[in-house]
Design a binder for these strands. Structure first.
Length: 229
DNA sequence: AGATCCTAAGAAGAACTGTT
DNA sequence: AACAGTTCTTCTTAGGATCT
């Protein structure tokens, strides 16, 4: 069995000593590393993992841009490295959709381990359509897991189906009837609207922020496109 | 008043364990 | 290894409480 080196792109605005040390360490770990600037934003992602070195003054602005860019490809993972960042900076990046955040100064070995972990998640079972992303949520369709704010939430099959359809609707409200058709399927099984209510309730209990699923009165439910923090 | 939320209870199936 | 019994998990329904 041949082993292909893991491809990693390091994105940096300003190349610092810390960045150089990071690149050297990744290469020592037999990773195929490319260093680029934010101009990478203009191109579709080609590597499985992108390590983004962020100055805290840029972090908040750039975070959303990076995530929207990487979301166009369901196989790109994002790790933010924040120079002199605060816990609040980490929270902002995780909430924006980064898969992981490592505050500098960091242990190179720890970062390498985190890269491998994100790579495993991103390339789960090698499926190209195994993940759905929307805002701060990433849904692993195969592993039945939802990642929010760096937390992993296990879902049952019906919870997974409901979240999947809400994410696919991308903020558009879905009625209970639509959710029954899409998540439960259009088989002979008779399921009442209350079943939808209860799955939504269970999901809200599991989510770190229950308001991520909004009730649209007289219409149905939708994934929140914005959330007050 | 109608819509939504929440809790409790029961059914069904899956997973686990012990015995042969 | 195969089977049976037990336990656990998931899903659904019903009904009352709360909200708009």
């Amino acid at each position: 069995m041949s082993i292909h080196p893991l491809r990693v792109t390091v994105v940096t605005i300003v190349t610092t000593q810390s960045t150089q040390r990071l690149v050297a360490e990744l290469r020592r770990e037999a990773m195929q590393v490319e260093v680029t600037t934010a101009s990478v934003l203009d191109q579709p992602p080609v590597d499985p993992v992108y390590v983004v070195s962020l100055d805290p003054s840029f972090a908040r602005i750039l975070a959303e841009r990076f995530v929207s860019w990487a979301s166009t490809d369901l196989n790109a993972g994002l790790i933010g490295v924040v120079e002199d960042g605060s816990p609040q900076d980490n929270e902002v990046l995780l909430a924006a959709g980064f898969d992981d955040v490592v505050p500098a100064p960091f242990s190179a070995r720890e970062l390498v381990a985190r890269i491998r972990a994100v790579h495993r998640r991103v390339n789960w079972k090698g499926a190209s359509n195994g993940r759905l992303r929307f805002g701060e949520m990433t849904l692993d369709l195969h592993g039945r897991e939802l990642w929010i704010d760096g937390k992993t939430i296990s879902l049952t099959s019906i919870e997974l189906a409901v979240v999947r359809e809400l994410i696919k609707a991308r903020g558009k409200p879905l009625s209970r009837t639509e959710l029954l058709d899409l998540a439960w399927g259009e088989g002979d099984l008779e399921v009442s609207d209350r079943a939808v209510d209860n799955v939504i309730l269970r999901l809200r209990r599991k989510l770190p922020h229950p308001d991520l699923i909004e009730t649209v009165r007289s219409v149905g439910f939708r994934i929140a496109t914005t959330r007050a923090t």
